[in-house]
């Protein structure tokens, strides 16, 4: 077949991880983005300082999460009685039998997995950014960070809060706590963090420094 691709130098090629189409690697200008010509998924982004940005946002998300856990998330009042609940209260509220799973869902998908992902990103990228060799098992750490991405559901939790508020409607009066607003910022920060990761850049940098 005549496709003009050079099969001798496999390092000059990239196969789209989503649809397997072969592409020739070209040097990109800063700010350019390479997408698959068939399925349009992003192959390479050359955002300037992709590593700096990812690091900064991952650290920011950890600080915000720490704050969000300390303050009350929502408050309610009915007939003169008041009650406040933090995220920790939501997690610990369920102790009977299978309902523990509900608290576990919140614990894992909203708190633990987003933080594990941020920690793994920092672990992988920090030494690379300093120009030092990657830490042990950096490849595994970055692979896990990427695999966890769909399981970190902070943005879904915030929409869930909105739906919960609508659902209660007139049943009780609801107020937002500090933690709620911190969480809204956290959702944005995590969104930007996910958008700033360029997998190809990180994989090739790990390879360069370990070779």
């Amino acid at each position: 077949m005549t496709t003009g691709l050079n099969y001798q130098n496999l390092d000059g090629l990239i196969a789209c991880p989503h649809c397997d189409l072969l592409h020739e690697l070209e040097a990109l200008q800063p700010g350019q983005r390479a997408t698959c010509s068939r399925c349009h998924s992003t192959l390479i982004t050359t955002k300037s300082e992709t590593m700096d940005r990812t690091l900064a946002l991952a650290l920011a998300s950890a600080v915000l999460m720490a704050g969000a856990l300390c303050f009350p998330f929502l408050g309610m009042s009915k007939a003169g009685l008041e009650r406040k609940a933090s995220i920790v209260d939501v997690i610990l509220a369920f102790s009977e039998g299978w309902y523990v799973l509900l608290g576990l869902c919140v614990l894992l998908f909203v708190v633990v997995l987003p933080m594990v992902r941020a920690a793994l990103l920092v672990y992988t990228i920090w030494p690379l950014r300093q120009g030092r060799p990657a830490l042990p098992h950096a490849k595994l750490a970055f692979a896990w960070a990427e695999a966890l991405a769909p399981w970190a559901m902070t943005e879904i939790f915030i929409i869930g809060t909105a739906v919960a508020l609508i659902k209660i409607g007139g049943l009780a009066t609801i107020s937002f706590g500090t933690s709620f607003w911190l969480f809204c910022v956290l959702v944005l920060v995590i969104g930007f963090q996910n958008a700033s990761v360029c997998r190809w850049t990180i994989w090739s940098t790990i390879r360069k420094v370990t070779a």
Binding site: L74, M76, K78, A79, L81, R83, A85, D89, V90, A93, F94, L102, G103, C105, V106, F109, V110, P150, W151, M153, I156, F157, I159, G160, T161, V163, A164, K167, I168, L171, A172
Partner: peptide, 24 residues
């Protein structure tokens, strides 16, 4: 797919927040 989790979070939030014994 992930967005269906909304409902689980709604239940977790409501059940942990709205807890005033017999009143509501």
């Amino acid at each position: 797919g992930r967005w269906s989790m909304i409902d689980v979070f709604v239940v977790a939030l409501l059940a942990s927040l709205i807890r005033l014994g017999a009143i509501i």
